[in-house]
């Protein structure tokens, strides 16, 4: 690619095809985000271009709405709680999974990762039927438990991948110096795998923050989250307030993506993969 002038006509043709086609696809991928963000600053009520003028009225409408504010609160309460639970359970499990090969490990792994593959509607319906008699539907506890189950596979995968690069001699050195296993974990292992654990936590939070099917079936009116309110909003008539909510959620995604990238770099530095 570097020596572009040496390309034959055939190669130049294919390169053009590649650039044009992938350019179009990348545009297709970004188009919804590019289209919806400016609309949230529109002063008019129509969801179309050209904008009638710039204003923050839809953000004011969002902030003034008790319903949307409750949804925002719920999204963070449920997202953070389930991410904390998923990270704790998933990290400990990943430690066990990388430490030794025990019998039935393949099946255990398949079960632990299945929440990632089983259609969410089945998870939601199963949870609904099973936990309704226990009074866990229409409760925060129920939603947090369900979202934790959905988030753990990502924690297990991320932390297990980080542990693969972990030098076991460090843990052995710590043990030989008299540290108890728990001390070794908190003082030696955890600081070194922290970026992987944090990435896993982000994945778990994102899973909960984006989830709507379980919320749709299991949550009561008090537990409605942002995606759940958006779902109702999109079913009825679409208020431009939704574009403001969407923009805020895109901002959350950008922050999470940036955090993930920083963690990845930090992880590489900790492992000495990069200067």
């Amino acid at each position: 690619m570097a020596a572009a002038q040496h390309l034959t006509r055939e190669e130049r043709f294919w390169r053009t095809v590649l650039y044009v086609s992938s350019g179009l696809v990348l545009f297709f991928l970004m188009a919804p985000i590019l289209a919806i963000v400016p609309l949230s600053f529109n002063s008019g009520t129509f969801l179309t271009y050209p904008l009638e003028g710039l204003s923050l009225r839809w953000y004011h409408a969002f902030l003034a709405s008790e319903q949307w504010m409750r949804a925002l609160r719920n999204s963070f309460i449920i997202g953070i709680s389930s991410a904390v639970l998923a990270t704790a359970l998933g990290t400990v499990a990943a430690l066990g999974l990388t430490r030794a090969d025990f019998r039935g490990k393949g099946i255990v792994m398949a079960i632990l990762l299945s929440p990632m593959i089983v259609p969410v509607v089945i998870v939601a319906v199963g949870f609904y039927f099973f936990f309704a008699p226990l009074g866990l539907t229409a409760s925060y506890t129920g939603l947090i438990l369900a979202h934790t189950a959905l988030g753990t596979p990502f924690v297990v995968i991320t932390v297990a991948a980080t542990l693969k690069g972990f030098d076991d001699n460090l843990a052995r050195a710590s043990a030989s110096l008299g540290a108890a296993p728990v001390t070794t974990f908190f003082k030696v292992v955890l600081p070194l795998i922290a970026p992987g654990v944090a990435s896993g936590a982000l994945f778990a939070f994102a899973t909960s923050f984006d989830e709507v099917v379980v919320v749709l079936l299991v949550a009561g009116p008090e537990q409605r989250t942002l995606p759940r309110e958006m779902f109702s909003g999109l079913r009825e008539n679409i208020s431009p307030t939704i574009t403001a909510v969407a923009t805020i959620m895109i901002l959350v995604s950008v922050v999470m993506l940036a955090a993930l990238e920083l963690l990845r770099r930090r992880n590489e530095r900790l492992r000495g993969l990069r200067g």
Binding site: I33, D210, M249, I250
Partner: peptide, 14 residues
């Protein structure tokens, strides 16, 4: 990384 609901909303608008 953008929420599924956000992307669906954007497609409805588009």
């Amino acid at each position: 990384w953008t929420s599924l609901l956000v992307r669906t909303a954007a497609w409805i608008v588009l």
